[in-house]
Amino acid sequence: MGTEAEERPHGAAVVADGFGLKGPRGWAFRKVSFRAEPGALVAIEGPSGSGRTCLLLALTGRMRAKEGHAEVGGLPLPRKMAAVRRISALGQVPGVNELDPAFTVAEHLRERALLQRRFDGSVRALLRRPGTRAAEARARIAEAVAAAGLDLDALPKGERTSVRDLERPEALRLSIALALIGRPRLLAVDDTDLKLSDADRTEVWALLRSLAAAGTTVLAVCSEAPEDALRITTIAPEEPVEESAEAPEDPETPGTPGTPGAPEEPAGKGPAEKADATGAKTVDAKTTGAKTADTKPVDTKKARTKATGADAAEADGTGTDTGAAASTTEEGADDALAETGRS
């Protein structure tokens, strides 16, 4: 009698006071305050992008809040996130614990039962006989499937039906059954009424009410909450997203000195000195082999030798323009070779 009472699920009270979560793009939600008694049905409603799923994950210890505080079953968040994860379970949450479409229903259930026994079971349970452990796993699976209202015989191929062949209501019930195998004190379900007809939506909410009545606290994200649920409405924060430390680029003249976001040009530097940063002190006509004013191409090797002479150094100091560079001919390059002793 006492053992059965201990195994029965008992809900966890959920308390939030000024609860808020901030991500890289700003606040996902903030200033959320409510109190839910054990075994309550809490509906988190709001428009898409208002932080409903983030609030669900934060209250189950999967995301770290940034302001305010909350408690789940007397465990404070975010300080006891790991402990909260042990007493809570998630239904299917897109991007977090989605069902594998290639797995069958039976494979999902057996895998979850094995994981539950391996990571959450006591040492004494692991020392039991294999037959006893297998019987306990089957009993847990049957209990969870019945509580989730999943009729295996009504599926196209029974328990061998692949997840990809399930309709939306059956997939939702399977995800709830997988969560219930761990007998959580807090059950969290995302997108409760997504892609459901009115009749299916009514059945799903009836299922969640029955789970709450059995003692499990239920958090359900939805677009429209039923009247008998504790409604928590999330609203997208009005505070704008914080900008990065980098200055915004000017779409008209990006990177031009004198425009916002562009570095100012140091005083006293001309075009020839700016070219020093790229390793070329002379103007482009010498370093790139472009045609001169006399339409004769300059030999690049001879031009570099010319640049090492005294005449080239003097020209750099005075900011020689392209006209002076154009006067360099092949004879001038030969004279430069003779002056440096390399002819």
Rank of each mutant, 00 (worst) to 15 (best):
E4W: 12
P9Y: 01
H10K: 13
A13R: 12
V15R: 14
G20L: 09
K22E: 15
A28Q: 07
R30M: 02
K31E: 15
F34R: 00
E45T: 13
E45H: 08
P47T: 11
T53A: 09
M63N: 09
K66T: 15
H69Y: 12
E71D: 07
G73L: 04
G73N: 06
L75A: 04
P78T: 11
P78F: 08
A83V: 09
R86E: 14
I87Y: 04
A89Q: 14
L90I: 12
Q92N: 13
V93M: 11
V96H: 10
E98G: 14
L99Q: 15
D100S: 15
P101S: 12
P101D: 10
A106G: 08
H108W: 11
R110T: 12
R112M: 15
F119D: 06
G121R: 13
S122D: 07
G131S: 13
I141A: 02
A148G: 04
A148N: 06
L155V: 07
P156K: 03
E159M: 08
V163D: 11
R164Q: 15
L166E: 02
L166K: 01
P169H: 09
E170V: 04
L172P: 00
R173D: 06
L174N: 04
S175R: 03
L178A: 09
A179W: 10
A179P: 09
A179V: 14
L187P: 08
L196G: 03
L196T: 05
A199Y: 03
E203M: 09
A206Q: 14
L208E: 02
A213V: 14
G215V: 10
L219K: 11
A225L: 07
A225N: 03
E227G: 11
E227I: 08
T233R: 14
T234D: 08
P240Y: 07
A245Q: 11
A245C: 05
E252L: 14
G255Y: 06
T256S: 11
G258E: 01
P263Q: 02
E264I: 03
A267S: 09
G268L: 06
G268F: 08
G270Q: 02
A272D: 11
A275I: 05
D276E: 13
A277W: 07
G279D: 03
K281C: 05
D284C: 13
A285Q: 01
T287P: 00
T288Y: 01
G289F: 00
K291A: 08
T292I: 00
A293H: 01
A293L: 05
A293N: 01
D294W: 00
D299V: 00
K302N: 01
T305Q: 09
K306Y: 05
T308N: 02
A310I: 04
A310V: 04
A312D: 05
A315Y: 00
A315T: 03
T320M: 15
T320Y: 13
D321C: 09
D321H: 11
T322D: 15
A324D: 11
T328R: 05
E331A: 12
A333P: 01
D335Y: 10
D335H: 13
